[in-house]
């Protein structure tokens, strides 16, 4: 949402926005507390769109298989697309090394004690990348189901992983994160026969309870099982992104859908 066209005024706060105070006309501030981050995110998105790049923000809890998914994706799409990866972790270059071992450019952001990436960190990382030589940029966020959901990085789509060893009620427990997903991947699905307490149907039902209609896919990256729907999703997202850029448009993840809709209504 922006502060220029009034799209941040929703039916829920409209009354407050124009309420006169002490008989004088009050100019309400109505600025998001994340305004600085959001401005930077818009700038980042312009960078990506200029290069006709699709940028995906990968989020999940630690150890649910984000890096393994990227390794399998790089192997599968090696001859099709040029991929780059920004890795976010509190410490170590481990993940970036794993990605570089696949022959793909990777930049590691070590956040120290910060539990999420923000738009400014990503912007600094962009200068380490030959963006013009990429088709898809993955941002592997810090493993955390809470904070990363609230920070727009400039990505076009959010992909959230939920590994089957975690519990199928995670969407109900972390609604802010799972509401933000444009695609939910149930990872490590090869372990399902060994687990008697994870039901993919229940996980999906918990997601639907958040009024989310996004696709849900099962895959096992390390066994290269069920990758095809995910790869097809990436292919079509990249095609849509390029078509959008050619029309001079851009897209934000589902997270900001309400604001985008109000934008449309205001036209």
């Amino acid at each position: 949402m922006c502060d220029t066209c009034g799209c941040n005024i929703t039916p829920g706060n409209r009354e407050f926005a124009y309420k006169p105070v002490n008989g004088t006309t009050a100019v309400a501030v109505l600025k998001s507390l994340l305004a600085r981050n959001d401005d930077q995110a818009i700038h980042n998105r312009q960078h990506f769109d200029r290069q006709r790049l699709l940028t995906i923000n990968l989020m999940s809890s630690p150890g649910s298989g984000k890096t393994a998914l990227l390794e399998a994706t790089i192997d599968a799409l090696r001859n099709e697309y040029r991929i780059g990866v920004i890795e976010g972790d509190l410490e170590t270059e481990n993940d970036a090394k794993r990605i570089r071992a696949k022959g793909v450019p990777a930049h590691q952001i070590t956040t120290g004690s910060a539990c999420h990436l923000d738009a400014h960190m990503v912007h600094e990382a962009l200068h380490q990348f030959p963006l013009a030589e990429l088709d898809i940029l993955f941002i592997e966020n810090v493993g955390n189901l809470v904070c990363p959901a609230s920070f727009d990085l400039g990505q076009h789509r959010n992909v959230v992983l939920l590994s089957v060893t975690e519990g199928d009620d995670k969407p109900a427990k972390y609604p802010v994160m799972f509401r933000a997903a444009d695609l939910l991947l149930l990872s490590k699905s090869d372990l399902l026969p060994l687990l008697d307490d994870f039901s993919p149907a229940r996980a999906e039902a918990n997601l639907r309870n958040l009024a989310s209609t996004v696709p849900v896919m099962q895959l096992a990256a390390r066994k290269a099982l069920g990758l095809q729907p995910w790869l097809d999703w990436l292919r079509s997202e990249l095609a849509w992104q390029r078509a959008r850029v050619d029309r001079g448009e851009t897209v934000q993840p589902r997270l900001q859908a309400d604001g985008a809709q109000l934008h449309e209504a205001a036209r």
């Binding site: 829920g12 109505l30 009024a211």
Partner: peptide, 28 residues
């Protein structure tokens, strides 16, 4: 409810959030 955003009237899951995700500085 935060973990249940379906319509309370008909139970449908195609809903839009009208209010609830704000973090706004309203006035000073």
């Amino acid at each position: 409810e935060p973990s249940r955003l379906v319509c309370a009237a008909c139970g449908g899951c195609h809903t839009q959030l009208v209010s609830g995700d704000e973090m706004l500085l309203m006035s000073v």
